[in-house]
Design a protein around this nucleic acid. Sequence first.
DNA 1: ACTATATAGTTCGATATTAAACTAAATGAC
DNA 2: GTCATTTAGTTTAATATCGAACTATATAGT
Lengths: 159, 159
Amino acid sequence: MTSKNNNPDAIFGFFNEIGIIAQLSGNAFEKTMPDGMTLPQFSVLNHLMRVGDGHSPLRIARAMQVTKGAMTNTLQHLEKKSLITVKPDETDGRAKRVFITEQGRQVRDECIASLAPYLGRLATDISPSELADALPLLERVRKWLDTAREQPSRTSRSG
Amino acid sequence: MTSKNNNPDAIFGFFNEIGIIAQLSGNAFEKTMPDGMTLPQFSVLNHLMRVGDGHSPLRIARAMQVTKGAMTNTLQHLEKKSLITVKPDETDGRAKRVFITEQGRQVRDECIASLAPYLGRLATDISPSELADALPLLERVRKWLDTAREQPSRTSRSG
DNA sequence: ACTATATAGTTCGATATTAAACTAAATGAC
DNA sequence: GTCATTTAGTTTAATATCGAACTATATAGT
């Protein structure tokens, strides 16, 4: 009887798995992290290292696909731990600029290091190339969702 | 220089996309939902319809891969809205049994119905069969995470 | 029976998320 | 220059999550 329309089922199953994986992997991640490092905090730290720092909170929020309120929260935590510094933007009085500190770099490196054993175990059972093969579809889905989200109001983007 | 070790990158990218998709799809889902229906609440409702009701909160929590605390919270919300009823288990004084109400069934059906247009738009751009093709890998990853999670303590499972 | 342990569920504290209201500064109309 | 609109960031109120502490019941060992 479930063959009536299998489309919804496939889509549903897909997003259901995605949701559970996100949750389980996030938990596993934070459990391997030193201190009280959380996934969003690490993501920002990692972002600052990869694409460079000095950008505005809003720009980082868009890159991470979270709201600016969420980014304010995350940045406040990181700043309290002295892993980043936030300075006012000289040329724009309402903007700020985010910089990673030396301590922030160290912590980020430690996080990556402490993650290695776990990733190694994962790679033993599920080959990274398989994961890589799935990436194009995931990116397509993510971009579709991102676009669909902005269709109604067409705010933001291109920040 | 990023070619030094591409394994972590592939794995990282995979889970990063997964995380963002989970977040965006969850938001999109809740935006199309009537009332204040949330994804976890709907998931429980849907679960009760698909596998049948009368099970314990802990069993449902395990099926959804969340903690029992999270399930307590979700069930309390659903019960407040009269979408489920929770009765004591006759044969086990510390357990409860969860039942979906008639109103719960209706709301669940309305949720599915209100979701259809969105799924239709999605299916136009990304074929459901592509999503279905990705399912086996996702399931494998999910199960791996689930197993790895329980390796240290070996609690629960098989509820 | 008594005691120790395990299980079911709740509560608490920390974290996160969104959406919406709000403040402050920049930009544009005129 | 003045006023309206947009943009950057914060704050607030819901919701959710986890993990750990806690209560109550069941089970096992002796």
